[in-house]
Design a protein around this nucleic acid. Sequence first.
DNA 1: CTGCAGGCCCTTA
DNA 2: TAAGGGCCTGCA
Length: 258
Amino acid sequence: MIPDFCIEQIANSGQCFRITQESANLWKVMAFRQVLYIRCIKQGIYEFDCSPEDYRDIWENYFDLKRNYASIKKRILELDDPYLKMAVEYGFGIRVLKQDLWEVIISFMISQHNSIPKIRGIISKLCEPFDGVFPLPHWLRCYEEDDFAKLGLGYRSQYLSSLVRSVADGRFDLERLKKMQYPEAIEYLKKFKGIGDKVANCIALYGLHLMEAFPMDVWIKRVIQDKYNGFLDISKFDGYAGIVQQYMFCYERFLQRG
DNA sequence: CTGCAGGCCCTTA
DNA sequence: TAAGGGCCTGCA
């Protein structure tokens, strides 16, 4: 029994694109060159199909299981915000995943102005030639813009091919980025074509695990417009803004789509 | 056939 | 520095 954990909510939370539902109670998680099957035994009870070592070394970290979400929820509820209360109750099993940085960068570059099913499709096609493993930067070195375009990337093709080149020539340094704090990381990321404020914040949150990050997508903007009269002070979510964003995002999509 | 999807870039004032 | 048009593609 893992507290505050629901694989279905996580899979549909829009932060990752390689968790798929295989059958009613079976989920396939692809990350870090690994495949993990998670079976839902009954409500809230899960079985991870992996060794204790892999659980400890990979998946516990990936699913952010060491973080105490109950205490974060408590702090959010103490803000006495009726909308957030509903959002937290709805998304009880959401966790902000600690994903691979490079995969997050590429995934969210692709995500702009695209729908989730299409993003999933493109990423799946991108991984196909590499046996389903998300390609490392240098695996893509021989890719031309046209090769990316064939995946259905449209005008984003040039962003990807340009970024892959930047990694190759050392202008884009992943290891250096990993050491950066929030403001510096955002500034660094936005220097590259195809990464604006929203995508940079997604990368900071999901790839660098910086909890100050607060991606402002159309859903969040809509919430702020409709529920907060156009202004929301996120500085009060000190140290867990990114998690609040995730609750808001999922709840808003639920409200809009039913 | 239009409109639009979890933005970004570039050009104007 | 804020606002607005255009953008690949696929699907409703």
